Simulated assay, not measured.
Amino acid sequence: MKKVYIIHGYFASPTDHWFPWFVEKVHADYDIEVAVLHMPTPETPDMDTWLEKLHDKIGMPSNETFIIAHSLGCITLLRYLDSLQESFALGGMILVSPFDKPLEVFPNLNSFVDVTLDFAKLSRSIAQKYVIFSDNDMYVPPFVSKNIGVKLDSALLEIPRGGHFFRHRRV
């Protein structure tokens, strides 16, 4: 049975941004349940606590597991997957505005990016990989997100004027 998880970012919650819209859409169109994880203390995130949350809620992913992460949730997801000792096979992953470098505007998040990830292992272990980024993200420079996609051998999707993908805009 397919499992879909969403990992929010800094200062966010499961009811923010495009998360509720996405949950409703996937459930209505595909009858798949989506769990938006409530990450602990999103205003003062702690890397170890966030990683523990992913280990507790996701456990060992499989080819039936799909994970979408936004912003700080992306580096947390990559660190979690990299920490898995056994080989794993993740069905798919979408990273929205990912970063793996310190951000000038949020130096308090540096502990999340103070790591060397095995991108080759991650790329081999994840069947479908997508990186979505914007040309005008006010927090994450587009080249940082794009570079992660290249290192993961992901499909890249650049959204013009998408900002940091805070809100869902109905079209």
Rank of each mutant, 00 (worst) to 15 (best):
V140R: 02
D118T: 01
P102R: 14
Y139K: 05
L95E: 01
L84Q: 02
N110P: 05
T116P: 03
V144L: 13
F88H: 12
S125T: 06
M93E: 03
N108L: 14
K129L: 07
D114Y: 04
F119D: 02
L90C: 06
N108V: 09
G91Y: 03
D137N: 02
L109A: 05
Q85M: 10
V144M: 06
L117K: 03
N108P: 04
V144C: 01
V105M: 12
A89M: 04
A127V: 04
K129I: 06
D118H: 10
F106M: 07
P142C: 12
N110I: 13
E86V: 14
L122E: 02
R124T: 07
N108D: 15
Y130L: 15
L103V: 09
V144S: 11
L117Y: 10
F106R: 03
Y139M: 11
N136W: 02
K121R: 15
Y130G: 05
S123I: 02
S83E: 08
A89W: 03
L122I: 12
M138Q: 14
I126V: 15
L122R: 02
F133S: 08
M138K: 13
M138D: 15
S97E: 04
L90Q: 04
E86K: 15
S125D: 01
V140Y: 09
N108E: 14
S123Y: 00
K101Y: 08
V105K: 14
Q85L: 11
D82A: 05
M93Y: 06
D135N: 14
D100Q: 12
N110F: 11
A127T: 12
R124M: 11
S134Y: 03
V105W: 04
M138G: 15
V105A: 15
D118R: 00
S111M: 05
P141S: 10
L95C: 03
V115N: 08
I132T: 01
A120T: 15
E104K: 14
G92L: 12
V105Y: 02
V144Y: 05
Q85F: 07
Y139L: 11
N108M: 15
D82T: 01
F88Y: 10
S123R: 03
S97V: 02
I126E: 09
K101D: 13
S87G: 13
A89P: 00
V113C: 06
L103K: 06
S145N: 13
F99Y: 10
S134A: 06
F119P: 05
L84N: 01
L109V: 06
L95K: 04
F106W: 07
I126M: 07
L103Q: 06
G92W: 03
F112L: 08
T116W: 00
F119G: 04
M93N: 00
D118S: 13
V144I: 15
F119L: 11
F143A: 11
A127H: 12
F106P: 00
N108C: 14
V131H: 11
P98W: 06
S134L: 02
D100G: 11
S111R: 06
V105C: 12
M93I: 09
R124P: 00
V115L: 09
Y130T: 14
D82F: 04
P142M: 14
P142I: 07
K101Q: 15
S111L: 02
S87T: 14
Y139I: 12
L103F: 01
D135A: 08
R124F: 09
S83T: 08
F99W: 01
V131G: 07
M93G: 05
F88V: 14
